[in-house]
């Protein structure tokens, strides 16, 4: 049985729908179904939505609808969520050059966990990581599903600049930097792909609900893909996954 849906005001232009209070694939699936249903209906009073781990923040126009009216309209939303079938999930393949100058901390991660570098690469690139939500910086995916065997605490002293497209580990999570920024993650590699490119009509590579699959590549392949991206001839590889229960 699911926890009862909760409605909360977030100021006079925001309404939060809360579906639970823990990170879980089931809650995430319901969050996505709910977001999908809201977007399909194109409510003119709704300005935009921000889905997160356990909530959907609905930004609405208070000149068009009051909080009470909106909450009333969404009262029976649970019925729609349970009926709605989501499109089968897909995995977006992200090529990564592990180690070397682009992955300065991979040796530390290996030593910390009593593994070889190859084992770290193998463990990191095996799972399909669910994109639970997007946020923090433009295009940043909150990924779930990393093996605890490669969990490593953050650096004691954060680096002043970590290049965009760096792949790192912080505690029990893994992530990909989307813009150059300071940070304390253990950097294990870099992808030639850009997760955020404002010059493109689709500025952001990933969507909440997709999966990420890391694929180890060689230095040579990194160069080839980088060039293809420059020439606009690189096609993102995606595979369909079976619907998860």
């Amino acid at each position: 049985m699911h926890k009862k849906i909760k409605f909360l005001p977030s100021g006079d232009s925001g309404l939060i729908i809360e579906l639970g209070n823990e990170i879980s694939k089931d809650i995430n699936r319901r969050i996505r179904a709910l977001s999908h249903w809201i977007e399909m209906n194109r409510f003119e009073e709704i300005v935009e939505i921000i889905p997160t781990y356990t909530t959907v923040l609905i930004i609405y126009n208070p000149l068009k609808i009051t909080y009470k009216q909106l909450a009333n309209r969404l009262q029976n939303i649970e019925k729609h969520i349970d009926k709605l079938r989501l499109p089968p999930p897909e995995a977006v393949h992200i090529p990564v050059l592990y180690g070397g100058e682009y992955g300065l901390d991979i040796e530390y991660v290996a030593n910390y966990n009593g593994l070889t570098i190859d084992e770290v690469i193998n463990i990191h690139s095996s799972p399909n990581y669910l994109v639970y939500m997007m946020g923090f910086t433009p295009g940043f995916p909150y990924l779930g599903g990393m093996s605890e065997r490669i969990a490593t605490p953050r650096l004691d002293i954060p680096r002043e600049k970590i290049s965009g497209s760096s792949v790192g580990i912080a505690g029990r999570q893994t992530g990909i930097y989307t813009i150059d920024s300071p940070g304390g993650w253990q950097i294990i590699g870099r992808t030639p792909l850009k997760l955020f490119d404002p010059k493109k009509s689709r500025a952001v590579l990933l969507n909440a609900g997709q999966y990420v699959k890391f694929r180890p590549i060689s230095k040579g392949e990194y160069g080839v893909i980088s060039q293809a991206i420059k020439d606009n001839s690189y096609e993102i590889v995606k595979t369909s996954l079976r619907e998860e229960k």
Binding site: S10, G11, I16, E22, I23, T52, T55, L57, M133, F136
Partner: peptide, 10 residues
């Protein structure tokens, strides 16, 4: 808390 959406003036 678990990361959630933020409105203007929060």
């Amino acid at each position: 808390i678990l990361s959630g959406g933020i409105t203007f003036g929060a």
